[in-house]
Design a protein around this nucleic acid. Structure first.
Length: 467
DNA sequence: TTTTGAGTTGTTCGA
DNA sequence: GTCGAACAACTCAAA
């Protein structure tokens, strides 16, 4: 029986791990390896590195409890994986298949040098398996989700092995000791704990509370999903179990709504897998000539949370502070950048990708293209979120705004989403003088709305005239 | 091949 | 204050 490499990439877990299982089934000894890839690290910020590095330490500990350990190297995986395989005379490399163009190019380059076995696990269903009867990919979410639901899900997840074979003495590096994000203690144990807690409690309220950034109505599992500290299959099974235990229809609807969000992840994975060009340009050709503004100052103010619209600023500051943003607020902040500031969605996409601990090329791109109206199955271009109404609707007491925009702490609830409307004496009383302690709105909502509708109309008509 | 109904997350306007 | 229609066509999926 030969020696195999288990190449860990986005599957930092021992349970329900198809790549690890395959490596064990086909070899006597298995060497768990993670390659720190400078190409990927340089696109992302320190909070994400802190989560990843501490997650690697957790994985290493879990492996050591079982007699194994994690070998960590740094460099270009196309070089490092074959080099390590030669060092330990490995027969094969086992890894969970990833779908980004970069990952696919990388894996092809590795496979050209050594026997690489890719397994499922990134989604609940194998990549490329949710397609129309004629084999072509879906471009609309709803039919995709129907097809997804009709495919059977393997109902027994793979248990974590009790014991693992010892690892030979190989050099391994220790990643930098960066701060670990408070809200996201990394690791498989924490991921499973959160899933269990969510699936036995808040999932039943999910339908009602998921859009409320001022409450804890979401699972807050996205960073764990991104790095595979739990598997989508485990999540779906937990939600289905919760659904079958649901006491009433609204509770069941909560479970279904959450499963739908899991399906969205896989829908966008499917889109990226079948249409990798979406990382470079709009999915819809007629949306490729929008006259974006080149407005570096506005972009900086958006990034800093200084637009003068409280719900937008709260979101951007939450992102900067903790590397995560509530999904509803992601939509509002993204819509604001694209539609109110008329700045290219790709700039926002890059900023989110850099800042988010959970940043995922497929979901992030899908979300931005949806917001910008450039994507498959996207929001209509004339749907311009009103940041005031959105704030009043989803943060009705201003709790979320006050938490992340402390200079508005003392503003009365009536004005919390429109602080510039406060009379002077109230601005003074609240210690929130507009233009001094908190900025004036960077754009007027109605004027910005007119501007973006005209810009989109231009792109559509120029596309039409090209035909 | 043709036809038909549908398509995450909103906003504004006017009755 | 509430309600329905308009916003704008177009592409997709399925019959």
């Amino acid at each position: 029986m030969p020696m195999n490499i288990w190449w860990v990439r986005r599957d930092l877990r021992l349970s329900d791990n198809q790549a690890l299982t395959a490596a064990l089934n086909n070899g006597q000894r298995v060497i768990p390896v993670y390659i720190l890839d400078p190409h990927l690290l340089q696109q992302t910020a320190e909070k994400r590195h802190g989560f990843l590095f501490a997650g690697l330490r957790e994985l290493d500990q879990d492996l050591r409890c079982r007699g194994s350990r994690l070998i960590i190297r740094s460099g270009d995986p196309e070089i490092e994986i074959p080099r390590l395989a030669a060092e330990c005379s490995a027969a094969g490399v086992y890894a969970e298949e990833d779908i980004s163009p970069y990952a696919r190019r990388r894996d092809t380059a590795v496979a050209n040098q050594i026997s690489l076995h890719l397994t499922g696990g990134l989604g609940a269903h194998p990549i490329g398996s949710v397609v129309k009867p004629d084999g072509t990919p879906y471009k609309i979410f709803t039919p995709f989700s129907h097809a997804w639901k009709t495919l059977p899900i393997i109902s027994h997840t793979l248990p974590a092995p009790d014991r693992l074979p010892a690892v030979p003495d190989l050099p391994s590096i220790v990643p930098a000791d960066l701060p670990v994000p408070d809200l996201f203690p990394p690791g498989e144990r924490e991921a499973q704990r959160r899933l269990a807690a969510f699936a036995s409690g808040m999932i039943y309220e999910y339908q009602n509370l998921r859009n409320r950034p001022d409450l804890e109505g979401t699972s807050i599992l996205s960073p764990y999903f991104h790095f595979g500290m739990l598997s989508p299959r485990q999540a779906v099974l937990a939600a289905q179990q919760a659904s079958s235990n649901a006491p009433d229809a609204p509770s069941r609807a909560g479970c279904e709504a959450w499963i739908n969000e899991l399906i969205w992840r896989e829908f966008y994975q499917s889109i990226l897998y079948h249409f990798p060009f979406v990382l470079k340009t709009a999915f819809k050709p007629q949306m490729r000539s929008i006259p974006w503004r080149n407005a570096a100052q506005d972009f900086d103010r958006w990034k800093a949370g200084l637009t003068g619209y409280p719900i937008v600023d709260a979101g951007m500051r939450q992102l900067a502070a903790i590397g995560w943003m509530h999904n509803r607020v992601r939509m509002i902040a993204a819509s604001f950048l694209v539609k109110h500031l008329l700045i290219n969605w790709q700039d926002g996409e890059r900023w989110f990708m850099r800042s988010l601990i959970d940043g995922d090329p497929a979901s992030n791109n899908g979300g931005w293209q949806w917001t910008a109206g450039t994507g498959t199955d996207a929001a209509p271009y004339f749907r311009v979120f009103n940041p005031i109404l959105q704030g009043e609707k989803f943060d009705p007491t201003g709790t979320y705004v006050r938490r992340w925009v402390p200079e508005l702490r003392n503003v009365p609830t009536h004005f919390i989403h429109t602080p510039w409307k406060m009379p002077d004496y109230l601005q003074a009383e609240s210690r929130a003088i507009i233009g001094k302690e908190y900025p004036k709105p960077i754009v007027d909502h109605n004027a910005a709305r007119q501007r973006v509708l005209e810009a989109y109309a231009l792109s559509k008509s120029s596309a039409a005239s090209k035909v």
